[in-house]
C-alpha cells in the first residue's frame, strides 16, 4: 500500500510555480530520499503533505485518504522534523516532547510513557530535565527529532535533519532513521548531503524547479547516465599484459593502455575487480594504483540538472 500519493500537484505563489505538476508515490516501509538544490521545491512539497500549505492543483493522499478532506487523519499519522530547530528554549527536553506529543491527543500515563520512550530513542533519556540551551547542536537536532516521533506516526518527514552538526551526532541520527524504519515507519528524507541519501534511502527522487526529473533506486538513478564504470590501474611494466585476456574477464567492455595506465571500461553492476587484478598478477604486472570511477548520485544530479546540489 502507498503511504503517500501525490497526484499532479501544483503550488503557485503568484505567477511562480514552486511545485509544477508533480506526481509521486511513497510505498510503505520505504526510506524515500528527496534530493534537490535549495529552492527546488522540496520544502514546498513537504509543507503541502503536512498540511501547512494547500496545493493549488492536484491531490495528496496519506494512507489512502485525501488530506484536504481528512486533514486530522493525515496530520495525526505524520511526524514532521522541520529543517530549522523548532523547540522551546524555556522548556526542558521532557516538556518539549511532552507538549508536542500532547498536541496529538496523548494524555496521562501514556503521554509520559511515549515521551520517555522518544527521549530514550534519541539518546537524551538522561537529559530529560535539562534545558535545550545547555545542549550541543547535535543534541538539539536529536531533540528536534524526538518531538516528531513521540506520537508514533506512520510517516515521518525529515527535512534536512543533519544540517550543521558533528559527525558523531550525524551518525547517530542516520542510525536512528534506519532503526525507525525497521520499527515500521515510512520515512521521507530530504538532504543535500548526497552521501547520506545514498547510504540510507531505498528510493530516491531528484527534484529540480518543482519537477521530478528522475526517480528510482540508487542503481536505477546511476544507470541513467551510463551503465559502465571505469577502472584505472597504474602498472610499472605494461609489456607482458595481455589485452585479450583482460577483455575476457566477465563484464569488461573495452581495454586500452595509456601512459602506463590500463583503462578498463566495465559494466557497472558487475563486481570484477578481483578477477582483473588476478589476471594482471598472472601477467607479472607491477600494480602501483587502482582507481574505480563509478557514477555517483552527485554526478547524476550534475548531469541531469546542470548544477551542483550545494550551489
Amino acid at each position: 500500500m502507498n503511504v503517500l500519493n501525490i497526484r499532479n500537484v501544483t503550488k503557485t505563489f503568484g505567477d511562480f510555480a514552486a511545485v509544477d505538476n508533480m506526481s509521486l508515490s511513497v510505498r510503505e516501509g520505504e526510506i524515500f530520499g528527496f534530493l534537490g538544490a535549495n529552492g527546488a521545491g522540496k520544502s514546498t512539497t513537504i509543507h503541502m503533505v503536512s498540511s501547512l500549505l494547500k496545493a493549488t492543483k492536484g491531490e495528496i493522499e496519506v494512507l489512502g485518504k485525501n488530506i484536504a478532506k481528512h486533514p486530522r487523519f493525515a496530520k495525526s499519522n505524520i511526524g514532521i522534523v522541520p529543517q530549522d530547530l523548532a523547540i522551546y528554549e524555556q522548556l526542558t527536553a521532557y516538556e518539549n516532547v511532552q507538549f508536542f506529543a500532547g498536541l496529538y491527543g496523548l494524555r496521562g500515563s501514556l503521554l509520559k510513557e511515549r515521551t520517555e520512550e522518544a527521549l530514550e530513542f534519541v539518546g537524551l533519556g538522561d537529559k530529560a530535565k535539562s534545558f535545550p540551551k545547555s545542549f550541543s547542536g547535535g543534541m538539539k537536532r536529536r531533540l528536534n527529532i524526538a518531538c516528531a516521533i513521540a506520537h508514533r506516526p506512520k510517516l515521518i518527514i525529515m527535512d534536512e535533519p543533519t544540517v550543521g552538526i558533528d559527525p558523531h551526532s550525524r551518525n547517530y541520527i542516520l542510525q536512528s532513521v534506519l532503526k525507525l524504519n525497521e520499527m515500521g515507519c515510512t520515512i521521507i528524507y530530504t538532504s543535500h548531503y548526497m552521501e547520506e541519501v545514498e547510504e540510507i534511502c531505498t528510493r530516491i527522487a531528484i527534484v529540480d524547479h518543482g519537477k521530478i526529473i528522475a526517480e528510482g533506486t540508487k542503481e536505477q538513478l546511476k544507470s541513467i547516465v551510463t551503465d559502465t564504470k571505469e577502472i584505472w590501474i597504474g602498472v610499472r611494466s605494461e609489456s607482458n599484459i595481455s589485452v585479450e585476456k583482460l577483455k575476457n574477464v566477465p563484464g569488461v567492455v573495452s581495454v586500452r593502455i595509456e601512459d602506463g595506465q590500463i583503462k578498463l571500461q566495465s559494466k557497472a553492476e558487475v563486481n570484477n575487480l578481483n578477477e582483473v587484478i588476478q589476471q594482471l598478477i598472472q601477467d607479472n604486472a607491477d600494480i602501483r594504483s587502482v582507481e574505480e570511477q563509478a557514477p555517483n548520485l552527485e554526478s547524476v544530479f550534475l548531469t541531469l540538472t546542470g548544477r551542483n546540489l550545494r550551489d
Binding site: 529540480d208 524547479h209 519537477k211 521530478i212 526529473i213 541531469l304 540538472t305 546542470g306 548544477r307 550551489d311
Partner: peptide
C-alpha cells in the same frame, strides 16, 4: 519527457 527551465545563471533550458 520533462523540461526544466533554470534562470539562476543565465537561462538554461534542459529537455530530458
Amino acid at each position: 519527457g520533462t523540461v526544466v527551465v533554470d534562470g539562476t545563471r543565465g537561462f538554461r533550458v534542459t529537455t530530458l
